[in-house]
Design a protein around this nucleic acid. Sequence first.
DNA 1: CATTGCCTTCGCGCGGACGTCAACGTTTAG
DNA 2: CTAAACGTTGACGTCCGCGCGAAGGCAATG
Lengths: 130, 130
Amino acid sequence: MRIGELAERAGVSTRTLRYYESRGLLPARRAVNGYRVYGDEDLRLVAQIRTLQDFGFGLDETRPFVECLRAGHPHGDSCPASLDGYRRKIAELDALIGQLQSVRDQVTAELVRAEAELPGGPAPRCEMRG
Amino acid sequence: MRIGELAERAGVSTRTLRYYESRGLLPARRAVNGYRVYGDEDLRLVAQIRTLQDFGFGLDETRPFVECLRAGHPHGDSCPASLDGYRRKIAELDALIGQLQSVRDQVTAELVRAEAELPGGPAPRCEMRG
DNA sequence: CATTGCCTTCGCGCGGACGTCAACGTTTAG
DNA sequence: CTAAACGTTGACGTCCGCGCGAAGGCAATG
């Protein structure tokens, strides 16, 4: 299989595949004429990269998974390094979520304060009846 | 007050102040020689921008607050448009947090599955006795 | 011969908030 | 008078990751 076919089957552009190769993922054997030659396993490899990308992994972060696959393991996450990759990403996400949550709370506090200070008088959230 | 003094007092660079002006925030009067001239209210204006920036507001999103201040209101968030700005940002943050949470859960599920499939056997989270 | 596919390398684009430099005018202190 | 310090505009560089586009040339196939 050459680059065009792999690109079509994987649903990415040939540019993307060459880019992956330039980044050290997805190395390709070469035919005598210099054409890149791929096997079916490379399809799974690209699929693994895309999946992780969808999770917000950077290209570099997909490396352990890719190397795990290339080492012959059944899944990209069949290796300890990949699991660590998961764990790091989860920790990263938790940290980010926490920061965003904190900002969210601060902005909400500002909103509440500003609403209370409005010259038109505070807009009550609950109906006051007497 | 000229640009250097305002920059120092506000804790930003002169480049930043000129940039704000170019973006339509922070318009400056000009002296006869063409120098930008600022008043004390501009200091509060810059402070308002920085505060919002810290909350993750883009420059454009600070516009209602800035115009509110320039309209003579006591705070940048003394205007309805500013409150809407707060609300939009909160909604934005909620959406983002939700997405990240979803991704986090998916990655966690992958991690759990991969751990269970490890050739070394699943690493139990709880001791099994008996 | 034409078409299609592939090869390489170089450089561009995006988006936002600036940094940095150039080349020049102004003010101020010695 | 001169030099430093400050001001002006304009244009380009940076960071970040993930690519895209195009030029110029070789390979395979009809």
